[in-house]
């Protein structure tokens, strides 16, 4: 009985049902490609927020240049597609890996910094990458951006309809978020939390904090690069303005509004801050003000976020973790 209950966990199944059945069915009712565009955008930003959650929430490092790595992924995927005619299957991992490699290179000298110095360093790195994207005209076409006409093709199957594209995005995002979730709730994730709580203490206990920081920064950039590649393939157009400082801040706002340190919170934050401007489209120009106000009041009245880490942890423990229904002889939960 308990074995069965262990296998059938309601929340992941429910989430999968919503993402893969309910949303496409519901959107197909409206029959407009536009709604699928929004759904893709929400999923991509959910992945972005989840990847930033790994650095900002779990490891507690204030990262102000995340959009730049997202941009690297998008540009690498788009340029591979247009210049070298390599398809989605190459562009997706290449985007992630390029972002990760770049993150590793910039992380090696800068990850010894702490607190506000770290934040400023990431801000500078993000701005530098943005400047390069904007001004290396011979490669990135500068402010004009890159148009990517080749759609998503997988092993001879081309995702042409909005539903098919949505499914590709949803699968990639779900798999990546699952990976981030497992990573966050492992011993490795706990080591990262120790960085956040007290990095000097963690150092004294034998945790190599600098190495951990470099690793988590690189990993997070990898997932941001994946999100960037998805963005390039779903919109078919990348330009430097999509990857500027205000986008880094937008992603950070998602993580903070949702609750620093909680993965469900980050995803909820992404849903809220992407869908809100769309829902408020009827309000015309006032909507950006309203988004700012929502951000402000959610910080003011919910300082721990909509779905803070502690409630997120009990939630996760109940539905995902094994620590509560531990089997004799089984491994200790996370």
């Amino acid at each position: 009985m308990s074995e069965i209950r262990r296998l059938i966990r309601p929340v992941p199944i429910l989430l999968a049902l919503v993402i893969f059945v309910a949303v496409p069915l519901g959107l197909a009712q409206f029959g407009k490609g536009y709604f699928f565009q929004i759904a893709n955008l929400v999923l991509i930003f959910a992945l972005l927020a989840a990847s930033l959650h790994l650095v900002a929430g779990v490891a507690g490092l204030l990262h102000l240049g995340h959009a730049a790595f997202y941009g690297i992924g998008a540009y690498v995927a788009a340029l591979l597609g247009t210049e070298l005619k390599l398809g989605f299957l190459w562009g997706l991992p290449a985007g992630g890996l390029a972002a990760a490699v770049l993150a590793l290179i910039v992380a090696l000298p800068t990850m010894r910094l702490v607190s506000i110095y770290f934040a400023v360093a990431t801000l500078a790195i993000g701005q530098m990458i943005h400047t390069v994207l904007l001004n290396w005209v011979s490669l990135t076409k500068g402010p004009n951006g890159v148009l990517l006409f080749s759609g998503i093709k997988l092993f001879g199957w081309a995702a042409k309809t909005p539903v098919a594209i949505y499914f590709v995005v949803a699968v990639v995002v779900a798999a990546s978020i699952f990976a981030i979730h497992r990573l966050g709730h492992s011993y490795y994730g706990n080591a990262l939390r120790s960085l956040r709580e007290d990095d000097q203490c963690a150092d004294a206990m034998g945790i190599d904090t600098v190495r951990l920081k470099i690793e988590v920064f690189t990993l997070s950039a990898f997932f941001a690069g994946i999100a960037g590649a998805l963005w390039a393939y779903t919109t078919g157009y990348v330009s430097p303005t999509d990857f500027n400082f205000s986008n880094s801040i937008l992603v950070l706002a998602m993580v903070v509004v949702g609750g620093l340190g909680s993965l469900p919170g980050a995803i909820i934050g992404a849903f809220l801050l992407i869908l809100l401007p769309e829902v408020l489209r009827g309000f015309g120009d006032v909507r950006n003000v309203l988004v700012g106000l929502v951000m402000f009041f959610s910080i003011l009245f919910l300082p721990k976020g909509l779905f803070g880490e502690v409630s997120a942890l009990t939630f996760v423990r109940r539905h995902f973790g094994r620590s509560q229904n531990r089997v004799p002889g089984g491994e200790v939960g996370w």
Binding site: A253, G292, F296, I299, L300
Partner: peptide, 10 residues
């Protein structure tokens, strides 16, 4: 930090 950012957006 975030609240000042939100005010600046508004």
């Amino acid at each position: 930090l975030m609240s000042s950012l939100a005010v600046s957006i508004v």
